[in-house]
């Protein structure tokens, strides 16, 4: 975890076009790399845009590095680097001119901005293509150019919106490696994505949004190091709902999946053989019982379930 709170949300609400998009977000995030998760339309991009000052909160507050987004927007933006989800470049410019312009707009002197643009383009892997027009770049190259402009001025916090969107596997791995390296240098990072694996690969804390609300905030590092046991099971026949209720009664955390599948966390003192006994009592077959390694997926699905139940 980082030294100071990266992000503090206190009843944050944002209304766009008369429609509430963020509904009372509350929580404190102090991870080095924070994953911002949620299904499409959950409010991830709106939250990032609000932190950047693009949208004004209709109620509540948000603080980034202790600075109120309402009152100290310019100060916050001076400390930020932002990589948007969608295409974002100036038509007709080469990568080096584009990144240089962004560096100058962040306050770097013109000469230093040019040097720094070359440096970061080499670092992200676009050194050989830096004089090419951005219009001719592939999707993966455009993502890297967006990352380059976001880090060119040495921000303290990096907001990355779907950084691996549309990338092939090798480009995706490269992007994740770059993010890890940036975080290792001391930059705080917020990664918004709907790809659980990508978020899990780089984050040490996650906030899950669903329909504009906080579904859960979890410390991934702590989850990974805990002694909890994650299992995935699949049933056939019998009363599956009652079986899952029995498991919950045993103290298991249960997240129901589609097609009679479920993910559970066994509490201390409960052995897996107890599940077989319960299944027999309920007259159903356990067709599959495997150790689920993806704890983030479990957290996510559980959060989705709980929020759905609470709605």
């Amino acid at each position: 975890m980082g030294d100071e709170a990266l992000l503090e949300l206190d009843g944050l609400e944002v209304t766009l076009g008369g429609r509430p998009v963020l509904r009372g977000l509350t929580g404190r995030l102090d991870g080095r790399v924070v994953g911002l998760l949620g299904p499409n339309g959950a409010g991830k991009t709106t939250l990032l845009a609000t932190l950047l000052g693009f949208y004004r909160p209709s109620a509540g507050t948000a603080r980034l590095l202790g600075l109120d987004v309402r009152e100290r927007g310019a100060e916050i933006r001076a400390r930020l680097g932002y990589m948007p989800e969608t295409d974002a470049f100036v038509a007709g410019l080469s990568a080096v001119r584009f990144v240089r312009r962004m560096a100058e707009l962040s306050g770097l002197p013109a000469r230093a901005a040019l040097e720094r643009a070359h440096e970061v383009l080499f670092w992200v892997g676009l050194g050989e293509a830096r004089y090419r027009s951005l219009d001719t770049y592939s999707l993966g190259m455009k993502q890297l150019a967006k990352l380059a402009q976001a880090i060119v001025h040495g921000p303290q916090v990096l907001l990355l919106d779907e950084p691996t969107n549309g990338l092939d596997p090798s480009a995706r791995q490269r992007m994740l490696r770059l993010i890890r390296e940036i975080a290792a240098s001391g930059v705080r990072v917020v990664v918004s994505s709907h790809l659980l694996r990508d978020v899990e690969a780089v984050s040490d804390q996650v906030i899950v949004l669903r329909e504009g609300r906080v579904a859960t905030i979890a410390d991934l590092a702590a989850e990974a190091s805990s002694d909890r046991r994650f299992l995935e099971l699949e049933t056939r026949g019998g009363d599956a709902a009652a079986f899952l209720a029995d498991l919950a009664g045993l103290g298991c955390e249960v997240a129901e999946l589609a097609n009679r599948r479920a993910k559970i966390v066994l509490p201390e003192g409960v052995e897996s053989r107890r599940l077989w006994a319960l299944a027999e009592e309920r007259g159903l077959q356990l067709r599959r019982l495997t150790v689920a390694r993806n704890s983030l997926e479990h957290l996510f699905l559980k959060a989705m379930e709980e929020t759905r139940a609470g709605l």
């Binding site: 693009f54 932002y82 470049f89």
Partner: peptide, 19 residues
């Protein structure tokens, strides 16, 4: 202005301390 709007560069300007 159009080259900044065609490919969505405006958020990159306004994500900096620029009004």
């Amino acid at each position: 202005v159009a080259p900044d709007l065609v490919h969505g560069a405006l958020p990159l300007y306004l994500a900096r301390p620029i009004r």
